[in-house]
Design a binder for these strands. Structure first.
Lengths: 230, 230
DNA sequence: ATAATAGTGTCTGTGAGACATTATGTA
DNA sequence: TACATAATGTCTCACAGACACTATTAT
């Protein structure tokens, strides 16, 4: 087949909403060169030898094999390719945005969560062009948070309005009127995407909060017909 | 570098708005196997030997080298990869949506435009999984037409409201209230994205139409804060 | 009682949707 | 004059935005 081939990988930008209401990024300590022992995005090489039925399956494999995680949402963001991003030569990376449950914990010593902001603001450097991939994945998330229910995939199946508010604010990077969010959740309830489980949950103080339940429909995200934030 | 590599290509879904108000798809007659002499999407292989500075540059090269075209808009849609799409084995294709000017004509005998609908409805078969790529690219276009000015890139720099209406309707596949579109164009005018050239243009019959001029700003597309079509 | 948190109600502004009406040209 | 097409005006509705107000718990 000659040498009409190229080095290709799938990399995962996996995010978790931590109890403080900020986003965490999953990193893995690289086992092999280049950049051995450096913390980087989890990923796998794709090629004919691995029996990945599709690129999306390769992304799931990357997250499952490397971190034993199954994301609540997984979507392809884009593919970058050039001669500079990998010291081994011209290479491609198709990278995915993954949202994992807030209770997610890691077993392995070679896995950790770091504050997403540390990477976005350049205070934590990543090998290859991984910081750029993280930035693009975050941009996708922030963009969709404006007009879709995507941030709900950062929550457990049963959640409260307060938690949903934290998810949206973490994705958007700014405050959201709770009345606006309540209106949107109400519309999702009418559409059958959210159920009101009659149960209540008691915060440390104050009035008890209703417990809602997600029932994602086709496509995984509910699309609102207007943008939040003017 | 061992055999950790894979066959990768860039394919282009180039669309043109024809005078009848429908979308045309650019096809090229394949010179080489597999599928030699079949009509397919224009594309190029990407690998270290070609000095493409980036994947986007490879996409521009594909369109320029194969069809001598420079698109008015070019955006990456997605990457597909599996073992079935190419008879040569596991392969990747990163495909782009390109919008070309309505006056675009083709010199080469090995290039032609076909009705996009023929491909979308399966009446015209394409080799590889190209029909699927076309469907995804069209879906992207239709999706963005709901909340952005993207369809304007199917028009000449100087255009009329009627032409803009045709572009939106072709992308969305359904009628759009002209008053809605006028309102959106008016808002773009206020934002400096569209100028009113004072000139008029006379249709075969009826009142003369104003000639507008595009001044695309950063990002290429103007984003509306609400969706058209409820 | 006080603080904290959850949830509701009210008012405004924007812009899409639908449709009627007016304007300006050709045949 | 008849007709075709462009452009404007009017009214309604949905929903975000802002903020006040009420409700329900813990300490």
């Amino acid at each position: 087949m000659s040498r009409a081939e190229v080095l290709a990988s799938v990399d995962i930008v996996a995010l978790r909403l931590n109890p403080a209401g900020a986003l965490d990024l999953l990193l893995i300590r690289r086992a092999r060169a280049p950049f051995a022992d450096r913390w980087a995005l989890p990923g796998v090489l794709v090629n004919g030898r691995c029996a990945d039925p599709s690129l999306d399956a390769a992304a799931e494999r990357a997250l499952h094999d490397k971190a034993r995680l199954r994301p609540q949402h997984l979507e392809q963001v884009a593919t970058v390719g050039n001669a500079r991003r990998d010291p081994r030569g011209w290479s491609l990376s198709t990278f995915y945005l993954a949202l994992v449950a807030p209770a997610t914990t890691l077993e392995d010593e070679d896995l950790r969560f770091v504050a997403l902001d540390e990477v976005l603001h350049g205070r934590l450097a990543l090998p290859f062009d991984h910081a750029e991939l993280v930035a693009q994945a975050h941009e996708r998330l922030a963009g969709k948070a404006v007009y879709s229910s995507l941030p709900l995939h950062l929550l457990a199946p049963r959640f409260t309005v307060t938690e949903a508010l934290a998810a949206f604010q973490a994705c958007l990077g700014q405050a959201v009127q709770h009345t606006t969010l309540r209106g949107r959740l109400e519309r999702m309830k009418s559409a059958g995407w959210i159920l009101d489980t009659g149960e209540r949950q008691q915060p440390r103080m104050g009035r008890p909060q209703r417990v809602l339940e997600q029932r994602p429909g086709a496509g995984g995200v509910y699309l609102f017909d207007r943008s939040v934030l003017s």
